[in-house]
């Protein structure tokens, strides 16, 4: 028996919107720790890792570890039928081949049940060891989304270079080039607007903007985004979900041929 009740149903809607363009089908893993997912995009270039900890749910019952295969587009469609302020409950009986999404409006005078078929998904789970990254940038999530969107109108890839002073995003395309530098900030009164750089070594890496633009669909989930880079590792882009966990995207770099 599985029963997860989330007071902020809008959060689950945002989580689905943040993943559905990148991944078609994925297994959601439910354990006493929380509700989680790890999945790669179809070309195995990017990986998304989601954790919603059990403490963040108003009620969390998961009698045994279960893995439930879902089509993320279909799940997003069903969740779009929930109001942003609705309470969302996920329910599944042991051995059942479907999951029920129950939506309750805030005044609790409208209750909706949506039942979705589960699928068998043969997915590959990757072990991601903890790593010390050479450069970590924390910046406003909306600013990062804006930069990725703007640069993708000029070029297909972005060179991200981190130094002690700031982070530079550069691209080039048929029409010309673009460079955006975000300087490290030192304000203390508005931490959500800060650009914070933790640098062990300067890093310069190239990434496909198409993927970064897809990751920025998670922007509504967090005010800040954390970008971790090392020269010999995929980058990690993390949006922390307050009181619940995180959504992390891993993207393999492009290298000179």
């Amino acid at each position: 028996m599985l029963e997860l009740r989330l007071l902020q149903g809008g959060l689950l809607k945002k989580v689905l919107e943040a993943m559905k363009d990148l991944v078609n089908d994925a297994n959601f893993d439910c354990s006493p720790t929380g509700f989680s997912l790890q999945a790669m995009d179809s070309s195995h270039v990017a990986l998304v890792s989601l954790l919603l900890r059990s403490e963040g749910f108003e009620h969390y019952r998961c009698d045994r570890n279960v893995s439930m295969g879902m089509n993320l587009n279909n799940m997003a469609k069903m969740l779009r039928c929930a109001g942003n302020d609705d309470i969302v409950t996920l329910k599944a009986d042991d051995g059942s081949d479907c999951i029920t999404f129950m939506f309750e409006n805030p005044s609790q005078d409208k209750i909706a049940d949506f039942e979705m078929k589960l699928m068998d998904i043969d997915s590959e789970h990757l072990g991601i060891p903890d790593a010390e990254y050479q450069s970590i940038v924390r910046m406003p999530a909306a600013e990062f989304a804006r930069i990725c969107r703007d640069l993708s109108t000029i070029g297909d890839t972005v060179l991200i270079s981190v130094s002690k002073e700031g982070v530079q995003f550069s691209t080039r395309g048929d029409m010309g080039t673009a460079n955006i530098v975000c300087r490290r900030t030192t304000t203390v009164d508005k931490p959500e607007e800060d650009v914070i750089i933790e640098m062990e070594e300067p890093v310069s890496l190239t990434f496909a903007l198409r993927y970064l633009n897809s990751f920025t669909k998670a922007t509504p989930l967090a005010t800040q985004v954390t970008i971790s880079m090392s020269s010999d590792l995929p980058m990690v882009i993390e949006y922390r979900i307050e009181g619940m966990g995180y959504i992390r995207y891993y993207l393999a770099p492009k290298i000179d041929e």
Partner: peptide
Amino acid sequence: KGAQLSITEFYRAT
């Protein structure tokens, strides 16, 4: 434009 590496080149399947 450079070669795109795959994420599976970095992390092992569990």
